[in-house]
């Protein structure tokens, strides 16, 4: 997150979106399907971090856990309890899947906070794929487990009969808006925070404002640390909520 403002033409020039540029790590070629880019690099670091915590950290299998193992077990217990409480006991089969989503998002978010890093989860390409994965999984699971009864999700049987078609339309729309809000929430939060930090950093070029700017960056950074975790949590818990709808579609 280098300072962006340059004194060209005498005014401040902000490029808050430049930090999200995808570019090849080696050379200047076009970004193709298999090109190794900064996305690759930071996703690889995410994978390494997840492995370090969940595999290397727990390699001791200690009955009395050390620091790393404690964190790993904490994450495990946190998500396991969430799946069990929110989605129900029969959703435990999906626990590794949800755990994968959570670990990836939380590590990608936190790694994105490392200065000069690239935030993979701030890209719609990433979050839309994640949200679509959840959406498709939930829909498929819903139809496989309940058959046509899954459509009962849209037919609110507790409402008066005359209202039901209207409600069905609303329910269907809200069902299909789910992946949109699910993905945009995550990417938007991350992007907003990083862009705002960048804009504040741009103001640091003015000597009179720079102390204020540094304070503002620090405050935003603290907020972003919070947001990073909360967004991962929210993404995961919403996945659990959707999964609950798929497993128990009755309202």
């Amino acid at each position: 997150m280098a300072t962006e403002a340059q004194g060209e033409e005498g005014g401040l020039v902000f490029h808050p979106m430049d930090q999200f540029i995808v570019k090849p790590l080696f050379g200047d070629g076009p970004v193709g399907l298999f090109t190794i880019t900064n996305v690759t690099l930071w996703m690889a670091i995410t994978v390494v971090a997840v492995i370090a915590l969940m595999v290397l950290g727990t390699s001791g299998r200690a009955t009395i856990p050390g620091r790393m193992q404690s964190i790993g077990e904490l994450a495990y217990g946190f998500i396991y309890k969430m799946v069990e409480d929110v989605a129900g006991k029969d959703a435990v089969a999906f626990f590794p899947y949800i755990m994968t989503l959570f670990m990836f998002i939380v590590f990608a978010n936190f790694l994105g906070l490392v200065p000069m890093s690239f935030t993979t989860t701030s890209h719609f390409a990433v979050t839309v794929l994640l949200a679509l994965l959840v959406f498709v999984t939930v829909t498929v699971v819903g139809f496989v487990k309940n058959g046509a009864a899954f459509l009962g999700l849209f037919w609110v049987s507790s409402a008066p009969l005359a209202l039901r078609p209207v409600l069905a339309v609303i329910e269907i729309i809200s069902y299909f808006v789910r992946p949109v809000s699910h993905s945009i929430r995550l990417a938007g939060n991350l992007m907003a925070g990083h862009a705002v930090i960048k804009v504040f950093a741009g103001f640091a070029a003015i000597a009179a404002v720079s102390p204020l700017s540094v304070v503002a960056i620090t405050a935003m950074y603290g907020l972003e640390v919070l947001v990073s975790f909360i967004q991962a949590y929210v993404f995961t818990i919403l996945t659990c909520v959707y999964l609950k709808d798929a497993l128990h579609p009755s309202h």
Binding site: S181, I184, R185, G188, N189, A192, V234, I237, V241
Partner: peptide, 15 residues
């Protein structure tokens, strides 16, 4: 948190 997330999502849309 779910409630906050829903409320916040709309703000994110405007952003």
């Amino acid at each position: 948190f779910i409630g906050i997330a829903f409320a916040e999502a709309l703000g994110i849309f405007s952003f």
